[in-house]
C-alpha cells in the first residue's frame, strides 16, 4: 500500500502585477508518497518554484486543496492561519535554497544548530557532530561561513535543514550556485538522505543530472504539468 504524504488538488497561484494577471501555478493535482524523491523541471517561469513553495506551506495558493500527512492545510483556496502553519513547517519540513542563507556571524556549528534556538524535536534531533560527520563537515565546525567553499556552504545548509529530522526536504535549485563537481556531491548527499533515511525529497532544478537522481521527474510549463 502506498502512503500518500502530500496531496494537492487543483492547486493554483495567481499573481496580479499591475493590470496583468500571471497564473504561476495552474490547477495542479499531484500526490507525493512518503519516501518519494520528486524533481520539478522546466524553463524559468514555468511555476516550479512556486509549486514547491505551495507544497512546503511557505506560500498561500489562490485556490485548490492541499493536505499533508492527512491534515488539511488548504481547503477551497484557504490556508490555515500562520499560527498553525508555523508549527507545521518546523515539524514536517526542511528547506534548502539556491542561496544558502547562512548567518555570517555564526560558526558552521552554530549555523547547523540554529533551528534549536527556536525549536528542538525532543528525542529526535541529531547532534551537530552526527550531521557534520555525515556531510563531511567535521573539520569545518569552528569556521565561519565566509571561510567555506560554495559546496561546503550548501552542505551546511543541508545539515541545518535536517538537524531536526524533518519528514520532507524541499530543495530549490540546491546546486544552482555550484560547479559540476560540487553539484555531484550535493546530488549524492540528497540521494543518500532519501535512500537511507527515507526522507521525502522534492526538488526544483535546472540541472538534468540532479533531476535524474529522482524517482519521478515532473516537467512543468506555464504552470501546468506536461
Amino acid at each position: 500500500m502506498t502512503d500518500i504524504q502530500i496531496q494537492a488538488k487543483d492547486l493554483s497561484k495567481v499573481y496580479v502585477r499591475g493590470s496583468e494577471k500571471i497564473i504561476a501555478v495552474n490547477k495542479i493535482t499531484l500526490e507525493v508518497d512518503k519516501g518519494d524523491f520528486v524533481s520539478f523541471i522546466g524553463p524559468s517561469g514555468s511555476g516550479k518554484t512556486t509549486l514547491l513553495h505551495l507544497l512546503g506551506c511557505l506560500d498561500d495558493p489562490t485556490s485548490g486543496e492541499l493536505s499533508i500527512e492527512g491534515r488539511t492545510v488548504v481547503s477551497d483556496g484557504k490556508s490555515l492561519p500562520e499560527s498553525k502553519l508555523s508549527p507545521l513547517r518546523r515539524k514536517l519540513f526542511g528547506y534548502i535554497f539556491q542561496k544558502f542563507y547562512l548567518i555570517p556571524t555564526l560558526t558552521v556549528k552554530e549555523n547547523i544548530l540554529l533551528p534549536f534556538a527556536f525549536h528542538r524535536k525532543p528525542g529526535l534531533a541529531m547532534t551537530a557532530n552526527e550531521v557534520a560527520e555525515r556531510l563531511g563537515l567535521s573539520k569545518r565546525l569552528a569556521h565561519l561561513p565566509k571561510e567555506l567553499s560554495g559546496g561546503e556552504m550548501q552542505r551546511v545548509a543541508i545539515a541545518r535543514a535536517i538537524i531536526n529530522r524533518p519528514r520532507i526536504l524541499l530543495a530549490d535549485e540546491p546546486t544552482g550556485n555550484l560547479d559540476s563537481k560540487r553539484s555531484e556531491e550535493i546530488s549524492e548527499i540528497l540521494s543518500d538522505l532519501n535512500r537511507s533515511d527515507g526522507l521525502t525529497i522534492i526538488l526544483v532544478t535546472h540541472n538534468p543530472k540532479l533531476a535524474t537522481k529522482a524517482h519521478r521527474i515532473i516537467e512543468l510549463q506555464d504552470g501546468r504539468i506536461i
Binding site: 511557505l58 508555523s86 508549527p87 513547517r89 518546523r90 519540513f93 526542511g94 528547506y95 535554497f97 542563507y101 540554529l114 533551528p115 534556538a117 527556536f118 525549536h119 541545518r160 535543514a161 531536526n164
Partner: peptide
C-alpha cells in the same frame, strides 16, 4: 529563513 526553520 529563520522563520522557515521554525522561528515564530
Amino acid at each position: 529563513i529563520m522563520k522557515s526553520m521554525g522561528a515564530t
